[in-house]
Amino acid sequence: MSLVDAPLAAGYTLGDFLLVAAAGFAVLAVGMLYRAVVGPTMQDRVLAVNVLGTNTVVILAILGAALGEPTFLDIALVYALLNFLMAIAISKFTVERGGVL
């Protein structure tokens, strides 16, 4: 029995609470989507997508802990690395306006 399967309170395990936390982050992602959709300038959208990417990394890491699958951290790492690429690509595009480089 690993740590996440240990009963914590009222019959719920630590994994259940981690899943609830992940669900909370997923709800927050819907809120951040508002800025990505409405955002008057492109910089707002870039920031919103960047925050969404970080949020996704957190969700993936929590899921990896809650479901007892350490390999989920690999996906979180991929996202952490490529979210940076997405952010610099969009930001350079919006600053340069036309020619990317």
Binding site: A26, A29, L33, A36, V37, M42, R45, V46, A48, V49, L52, G53, N55, T56, I59, L60, L63, L67, E69, F72, I75, Y79, M86, I90, F93, T94
Partner: peptide, 22 residues
Amino acid sequence: LAAVIIFGAYSLGMAALYTFYR
């Protein structure tokens, strides 16, 4: 450009969903 950015956000949600479904 906004559509491309929002599509990037779409992939974030899909990856989390795939991960949740193992």
